[in-house]
Design a protein around this nucleic acid. Structure first.
Lengths: 163, 163
DNA sequence: TCATGTGCTGAACCACCTTCACTATGTCGG
DNA sequence: CCGACATAGTGAAGGTGGTTCAGCACATGA
């Protein structure tokens, strides 16, 4: 039986991993002239293709007003362009410039390289055990009502009843 | 031999865990009237006892100027107090109020409860494998020059030479 | 056509972080 | 003891990321 102390130490390791990973990503993003939020937007755009700001707002879980600002900045620095939506004259379509597409492709390459650093050469049994452990953690979080989507409706006090 | 695709998926799991964990923490902090940065400061204070702002700035890896603002906010909402340093008249000591100490103690209880949710009842072999896997990842990151402290000196182009 | 909903933006605001300049104090060598 | 230099904290100004509210332009359905 594992102890509470071991649990807390394991949580500490996860949090350290969180800090190291996000720091490193922020740094490599900054090297390309991007902030976290702007890179995140580019990433969505990469996976969805040209999108309206509304769609991006939902994807990034952020207010539409904020998307305006991010797109302003990305357009000013030449990563994306705004074009009128072909059928809905209210909406604008955000698309990559060539530069934006190139940078995003580089981001994807970096991601694979990063995964390689983390996992390449790791024994199969350890890799499998690690992934199973992570899935277990995610399942436990979900089982306790902790999930990404909870941030939307968790303001409702009723949803705390199940604790 | 594991594939590049599996690596990328595993990285995705870690990132999801990161998002879920930090979202959940931010939410429970907000419930106590705290933001991430302010809670982080309280946490440091909890582990160090009354500290000068300089010490807190180093601990949080943040400019001293920013500490002034955070302490201002925490003092205004009654979590901490500023007192003159007993021997160094340049410095001020930041200490908990009763309220601040109580809230921080609650944070610590929450952390243990959270670790319990994550790990309690997990089979010993899985728990051990997970911790070993996490340690492996941290070791790989450090081996590739990715570390918490790298954020300080990584602005030096020389240090990139080892890639 | 008229009412209502949707997409985006201006204005105003808060949190967090930075750098630069400045004051007040500590410290150390001559 | 004193001048030179270092250190602790803060004011001012500014960038980024986020919010809400109000308003305009357009879409849509009764």
């Amino acid at each position: 039986m594992t102890t509470s102390r071991q649990h807390t130490e394991a949580l500490g390791r996860i949090l350290e991993l969180v800090v190291v990973l996000s720091d490193d990503m922020t740094r490599s993003l900054a090297a390309q002239g991007l902030t976290d939020a702007r890179a995140h937007l580019l990433w969505e755009l990469h996976h969805r293709g040209p999108s309206t700001q509304r769609v991006l707002a939902d994807a990034l879980r952020v207010s539409p007003r904020n998307i305006t600002g991010l797109v302003d900045a990305l357009a000013a620095t030449g990563f994306v362009t705004r074009e009128p939506h072909p059928t809905d004259r209210r909406a604008t379509l955000v698309s990559f410039t060539e530069h934006g597409a190139a940078v995003t492709a580089a981001m994807e390459r970096d991601q694979h390289e990063f995964a390689r650093i983390l996992f390449d050469g790791m024994p199969d049994d350890r890799f499998t055990a690690l992934v199973e452990g992570l899935d277990d953690l995610l399942a436990r979080l979900r089982a306790h009502g902790v999930s990404i989507d909870a941030s939307r409706e968790a303001t409702d006090p009723e949803s705390e009843a199940g604790r």
